[in-house]
Amino acid sequence: MNKTDEILERLKGQQPVIDDPEELTERIMSSLPDREVPRHDRRNLVGRTLLYISSIAAVLLVGFFLYQNRPKEQPVVTQQTETHKTPLPEPQNAEQENMPKVVKKHHVVKSQTSNVTLANIKRDVEQLHVSSSEEPLLASLETERDDSPSPSERAEEQLEEEPVISPEKQALVDIFLAEEVLQVAYEMHEQTEPLRAYIATLEGRELETSHQIISF
């Protein structure tokens, strides 16, 4: 290699040195003008922000809709009433076949007293009051105490199988129901004597005077 080529080769790739690079850097940085964020970047930023907000709002709306339309729970008493419905006993003789509807309803009510609230009892009593029967109410109630087991006895049998309420409470419920019926009968101007006697048997005491019972 001749001298010329040697000199040219030695010049290759060599870079001069800046005597004070930090000073030059600071000089450059201090002279930089303020840059605005490009418009398309700003648009993207705004667009992305709106997208995030709308996504969050959509999720909240769906959640709110689902919450509003969630399946509502049935009252416990109604559920228990439905599950503990007992079929009506089949009548054993012709007289019982002619048992009016009000008695049959009373059977149903009696058999379900173990699981109903007082409000339900009142409702059932109202049903008894509304539905008119061909035979007098008391006469039809009297048939309960014939040969066939009374509704209370059937309820007791049922309770023995699936005791849900204590006997004491059951008795109280029976008494309340009977008193309600008595009230209805009084309003219907029916004789109340047999019914009062029935109540007395439930309470385990002798029949009181009528005015004492009516006054309750």
Partner: peptide
């Protein structure tokens, strides 16, 4: 900055002019 200074010095043959070119270059880049 050293790379730009190298080019500017070899083209202009003046250190201060080369530094000015370096500063101007990076301002244009920014």
């Amino acid at each position: 900055q050293r790379l730009v200074f190298s080019l500017a010095l070899k083209m202009l043959c003046d250190e201060e002019e080369a530094k000015d070119i370096v500063q101007e270059t990076f301002i244009r880049v920014w």
